[in-house]
């Protein structure tokens, strides 16, 4: 059961903007832990098998990025050893790990974004701000699969007349590839005129366009959006006050455990777990519906 993605695009987009920008921002260990935990759990909820496949990519990436920092940065007081006269410090290692965690979390958020914010949702939102561009985007999006199909046809036709771009010398291959692209471009531009005529024939440019969509903004959307905004503001405030600040250099700062800080930590956790909560609620609801049927 997919629950989160049925919300209005503005809600989905706001969530990802909030989650991704805050995730990029907070390097405080507690915050990082919350970020990576929420990002992973939402990934499991939304992408399942795909997520487990992606580990092959994320784990090496994590280590690679964690290693780079101590190589280029020698700040910090807790020196482990010296390599070629450069200090290898615990702070630099920890900072590397923090950076790596942040980057992996951001990538994870984006992979959720890619599942939830399908192109039509983005085009719809974008269309509210910039109608002509969003239309350009929509046309382009439609053309890509069409051009790919045409490319395979051109490739075959050219193979028959001896212009096979997959065999022969490097120069021959390059020549064939350019030839194929060139054929595609002539074809595409010629057809584009029809498309433009078809837009004009249907009154494009006569009046200011309205943006039609199949999306409805329901009460639940308003409710969730309000929560997202509220929590985002509270986290913004937290960062302003300094709760989210954590120093790695010259040496580690302290993690605060006073009530105020704990409240702020919770508000961050609350913000990031909105989609997961919605997914779980949806799943439970569905199960109870099914059992009563």
């Amino acid at each position: 059961m997919k629950a989160f993605e049925t919300f209005h695009p503005i809600v989905l987009f706001s969530f990802f903007v909030a989650a991704i920008s805050l995730s990029m921002f907070f390097m405080h260990p507690i915050y990082l832990a919350i970020t990576i935990f929420s990002a992973i759990s939402l990934n499991i909820a939304l992408r399942r098998q795909l997520f487990f496949k992606d580990w092959k990519l994320y784990v090496p990436l994590f280590f690679l990025m964690a290693i780079i920092n101590p190589l280029i940065s020698h700040n910090g007081q807790l020196v482990l050893l010296y390599i070629n006269g450069n200090a290898l410090t615990v702070e630099a290692i920890m900072y590397g790990i923090a950076i790596a965690t942040m980057i992996v979390a951001v990538m994870l958020w984006f992979s959720c974004y890619n599942v939830v914010m399908t192109s039509d949702k983005f085009i719809y939102l974008f269309g509210k701000v910039s109608p002509a561009l969003s239309l350009t985007l929509s046309i382009s999006l439609r053309l890509v699969p069409r051009f790919r199909h045409q490319l395979t046809q051109i490739v075959q036709a050219q193979k028959v007349i001896g212009m096979d771009y997959t065999t022969g010398s490097l120069w021959h291959r390059i020549k064939c590839t350019m030839r194929i692209l060139s054929i595609l471009i002539t074809w595409a531009l010629d057809n584009a005129i029809d498309t433009a005529d078809s837009m004009k024939a249907r009154g494009y440019g006569i009046k200011k366009r309205t943006a039609f969509s199949l999306f409805f903004f329901e009460r639940r959307d308003g409710f969730v959006l309000a929560i997202i905004i509220l929590l985002f503001v509270s986290n913004f405030a937290a960062s302003f006050i300094g709760t989210t600040t954590f120093y790695f250099y010259p040496t580690f700062g302290a993690v605060k455990w006073d009530i105020g800080s704990i409240l702020f930590y919770s508000s961050y956790f609350a913000l990031l777990s909105i989609p997961l909560a919605i997914e779980i609620k949806g799943a439970l609801k569905w199960r109870s519906l099914k059992s009563t049927m």
Binding site: S119, D120, L135, T195, M199, K207, R209, F212
Partner: peptide
């Protein structure tokens, strides 16, 4: 002559304009 990427959007195109 198809302009947009979704059927519903194509149907609405002229009226939107």
């Amino acid at each position: 002559q198809i302009v947009t990427d979704k059927v519903w959007h194509e149907l609405a195109f002229g009226l939107e304009s």
